[in-house]
Design a binder for these strands. Structure first.
Length: 623
RNA sequence: GGUCCCGUAGCUCAGCUGGAUAGAGCAACUGACUUCUAAUCAGUAGGUCUCAGGUUCGAAUCCUGACGGGAUCACCA
């Protein structure tokens, strides 16, 4: 976007001048409220005059009249005004809108801000390697991806990373189950997508473990434990449910084997490490396929197997600086009670790391790797407390990037029946879901029969774009902070406030431009459009909406909130659909009108495409 | 129990740095395709913005307190 000052700033500054001249008081910029004029009134921008009544000692209406008169004479872009109660509505001149459209209609990157020299890291996805990706990961990936795109559009250089949790007891469970029951099967030999293949062994382990646990519960040993350890009024079922973890760690044969495997892995046992590499390799292969389908990618992968020992040096730093303290047993703590965050262990008494030690170390490592001034962590809201603690510690340590840390926290995706639970088999698988939405788009398209003349490959590409748009838009349009409900049984909507609705506005424009053929190019360059001086309200509104786009991107970047871009794209598409319905374009009343409307269409198409791209949504040329 | 988040139409969601009559979509009902793609448009109906106080010229929006839902408060990750 050009460096031109937004018109609301011009208005604000002139209101300040007017108040100075008329009433002899100096006010701050923030005191001048300039908003968009509501549809029912005439005008583009509205100033609220109530706050000035004390300064002016006049009625809001009088102030409105006086300010309006001043602005019309002093500001070229303001053509007229009207006052309704305490609201001063300003009408921006046609010339201003026309000039603006002339400047941007050909720009495919309208909305892109110039580089600001700042580098920001966005961490997202961050899966465990024992299970395939599910609906929760989809929300995470979409938020992370669009957040990074928005930051780029706002002028940042972005580094996309993910931290892969590739170690620990969970992957050992899959490994063990495969070793014991797999009989040498591979993803290739079974034809199962490789991350699902590994996930199936994780599920198999849990199944075998449950069987073992059940048998033990009936055994003499199990009953003895129940009798001796149960709390007074606890029944058998409840007791054993709560006892599960302890059983795994202290009684289970399978548990012992899995833990032994983890120890061997940590000791660097060659065979165990080889198996671990093989199975994680399968998982990564499957993940990449899903990422590819989702349209996300990463610049750098951090593996916890490499980073889980990091952070010890930071502990030393913190102790030296007196930020941490050591307990007699050797464990290291931080006192964050003055930040309302309690005491927190940062190193175990045996000298090994806890989760946050690793995160401290990884933060510093990333800074050393990329020199970013900001880091955004896209992680579900169940970790809010963890990130408050992490950021507070990094701040106290005086890390150079500490002021630029942000936790993009998002709510869980619930099913109509409640939470997704893997144990109850209600987890919505990412690959299944993607396939379903595309199938839905296909079914819908067949009824419509508008794509019968395109090639098979092209049609599949279009359907893929439509299906994914439906899914992505549905998720992105909800404010990240809110929990959202997703009903997988009810097929994703393709009509109304949806991705395909926005795509359709774009497709209609492309269709018009195709119809205009050669003349379109000439008309798009035709300065005659400037002679079109009877701008209808709908046309003016469309240009005014386009005008707000760059500012909105900044807003979305500032608040790390992609949902505002989704809302914008929808509103713009809605306005266009109405315009398209009510106004002829190629058969407009004059050559100037045709040229103008084509430029308007072109600008809208570019903006919609750019905006949807920020959400990770591709635009088809037809549908 | 402490802390944090959420509560807006039957359903899914906007609006929340205080401003005009609280907006969309879905579902329901009515109408518009010989005219640039009807995945569209126009209309009807649907609200105690959870509740109660407070601040203000003005509160869905800010403050306090209830109520309801969720998360978290491990030498787990």
């Amino acid at each position: 976007m050009s460096i031109t000052v937004h018109i609301t700033n011009i208005i604000q500054e002139n209101v300040i001048k007017a108040i100075q001249q008329l009433y002899g008081e100096t006010i701050a910029l923030e005191q001048v409220q300039v908003g968009a004029t509501r549809k029912e009134f005439e005008g583009n921008y509205t100033i609220v005059t109530f706050p000035f009544t004390k300064i002016a000692k006049k009625k809001p209406e009088e102030i409105g009249e006086e300010l309006g008169a001043y602005l019309v004479t002093q500001v070229d872009e303001i053509q007229a005004f009207n006052v309704i109660k305490g609201f001063l509505n300003l009408v921006v001149s046609n010339g201003f809108w026309m000039d603006f459209l002339e400047r941007i209609h050909h720009r495919t990157d309208y909305g892109q801000h110039p580089a600001n020299g700042e580098k920001v890291m966005v961490e997202f996805s961050s899966p465990n390697t024992n299970k395939p990706l599910h609906l929760g990961h989809i929300r995470n990936n979409l938020l992370g991806w669009s957040c990074s795109k928005i930051l780029e559009a706002a002028g940042y250089e972005v580094v996309r990373v993910q931290v892969v949790n590739d170690r620990g007891i969970a992957i050992c469970k899959s490994m063990l189950a495969w070793q014991k029951f797999g009989a040498g099967a591979t993803p290739e030999s079974t034809g199962i997508k490789s991350d699902h293949f590994v996930g199936d062994y994780y599920v198999l382990f849990e199944k075998k473990f449950q069987e073992e646990f059940k048998n033990w519960q009936q055994s003499v040993a199990g009953q003895q434990v129940f009798q001796s350890r149960k709390k007074s009024d606890q029944d058998e079922t409840t007791f054993f449910k709560e006892f599960k973890n302890l059983y795994f760690n202290e009684y289970s044969a399978l548990g012992a084997e899995a833990r032994a495997m983890l120890r061997q892995w940590e000791a660097g046992d060659a065979a165990t490490v080889a198996l671990w590499r093989t199975m994680n390799g399968w998982v990564y292969h499957g993940f990449e396929e899903t990422y590819h389908k989702l349209g996300v990618s990463f610049d750098k992968y951090y593996y916890e197997s490499n980073t889980y020992l990091l952070g010890k040096d930071i502990i030393e730093d913190g102790l030296a600086q007196g930020i941490f303290y050591k307990k007699p047993d050797g464990s290291v703590w931080v006192d964050l009670t003055d930040a309302k965050l309690d005491h927190k262990v940062v190193l175990r008494s045996d000298g090994t790391s806890v989760y946050i030690t690793q995160d401290l170390g990884t933060a510093r490592l990333r800074y050393e790797d990329f020199g970013v001034s900001r880091m955004v962590y896209v992680v579900a809201d169940e970790q809010n407390y963890h990130f408050q603690v992490l950021f507070e510690i990094l701040k106290r340590l005086g890390e150079p990037y500490a002021a630029g840390l942000h936790h993009l926290s998002y709510g869980m995706v619930d099913l109509p029946t409640g939470k997704m639970k893997s144990r109850e088999g209600t987890v919505v698988d990412a690959d299944d879901l993607i396939a379903e939405v595309i199938a839905e788009a296909r079914a819908n398209s067949q009824e419509r029969d508008t794509l019968s003349d395109v090639s098979q490959a092209e049609r599949e590409d279009i359907l893929r774009k439509i299906g994914l748009a439906a899914l992505k838009f549905f998720i992105i349009k909800v404010h990240p902070q809110k929990r959202m409900i997703f009903d997988p049984k009810e097929s994703v909507d393709l009509q109304g406030q949806t991705g395909p609705y926005v795509q359709n506005a774009y497709v209609r424009i492309q269709s018009v431009l195709r119809k205009a053929e050669d003349s379109a190019q000439a008309l798009l360059k035709n300065p005659k459009s400037l002679e079109y001086n009877t701008l209808a309200t709908d046309e003016k509104d469309l240009i005014a909406q386009l005008y707000e786009f760059p500012g909105l991107i900044q807003e979305a970047a500032r608040t790390y909130d992609p949902s505002v871009i989704a809302a914008y794209c929808y509103t713009l598409a809605k306005s266009y659909h109405k315009f398209y319905h009510d106004f002829p374009i190629l058969k407009a009343e004059s050559e100037a009108a045709v040229a103008f409307r084509l430029k308007l269409c072109s600008a809208i198409a570019h903006t919609l495409r750019f905006g949807m791209n920020l959400l990770g949504i591709e635009m088809p040329e037809r549908m």
